[in-house]
Design a protein around this nucleic acid. Structure first.
Lengths: 149, 149
DNA sequence: TCTAATGTCTATAGCGACTATAGAGTCAAG
DNA sequence: CTTGACTCTATAGTCGCTATAGACATTAGA
């Protein structure tokens, strides 16, 4: 299997596959007469593993460790559990901050709905209006803070 | 106000402030005799705006557009609303995928809890055991897919 | 007043995880 | 036998910083 086929099967770009090889995540495969990389099923599974980990936002050096573990499953795996725990924590924090963010953006958008003809922007109007302005969350105020208020 | 003071007041690093200037988000401020940048309150508010947007994961070129709009509020603001909508959508997608990911990682971790002495890893054991293995979600199987199964 | 510490300046290089480009070689179909 | 698609290597660019080097400015203490 040449690199293009591997790319197609996995949905990973050709350049990215070569990049993973350069970074030591994929081993250098045998070459054809014409110096083309030749992959087998094991390589495909290894790449799928990598891509799966990447979907999980793992970093390449963490994935590398996981691959080493995969290659030598008899080794101690305590750290794997720890790695997962710290990633789960990271994810919790990320979700929380995204939810906050979403709330704020929705709030902001609601001030600027329904398009606009040219002269008076709902966001700016809202912020010029002290009443409605101060009803909005603190963060929102800061976001366009320098306007008269 | 010198750059260090601005940095302290906003919680933004000095280098980052200079970086924002280079990228055209902050205008080049006047200089002191000794060639130090001198900022005023408006600069501070502008920087806070930028930082707030960054907290919202906006990209610098988007923020730049928002700043231009802030500088010329009479312009059409339809695109602002559209920008916000597309960002809210992005966030929804991100939250969803993070939640999926978290479920998978938790599931995976549960196979590798309680440490390990050296010879038999719970993850690998679980995956070697066809019964328990196939009870796990599809994605998890793939994650350590090349193991006997 | 001198000196040492701190702050600021510019320019450049590095990070992670790719992505794009250039220029060459290889292969299969018409 | 040529055209076009694929592959090769090497290098530079992306984004949003961060780190480093080496020089100049300012400030506090002796």
């Amino acid at each position: 299997m040449k690199i293009g086929e591997l790319a197609e099967k996995t949905g990973c770009k050709v350049v990215t596959i070569r990049y993973y090889e350069k970074k030591g995540l994929l081993t250098r495969p045998p070459r054809s007469k014409g110096n083309y990389r030749l992959y087998n099923e094991a390589d495909l599974e290894r790449l799928e593993f990598i891509l799966h980990c990447r979907k999980h936002e793992m970093q390449l050096d963490e994935i590398k460790k996981l691959l080493e573990f995969r290659d030598h499953p008899q080794r101690d795996c305590t750290w794997v559990s720890e790695l997962l725990s710290s990633q789960i924590e990271d994810i919790n924090a990320k979700i929380h901050s995204l939810q906050q963010l979403k709330k704020q953006l929705k709030n902001l958008r609601s001030r600027c709905d329904g398009g606009h003809d040219g002269e008076t922007c709902a966001i700016m109007q809202g912020l010029d209006d002290k009443e409605s302005c101060c009803a909005v969350e603190d963060d929102l105020l800061k976001l366009l803070g320098s306007h008269k208020h």
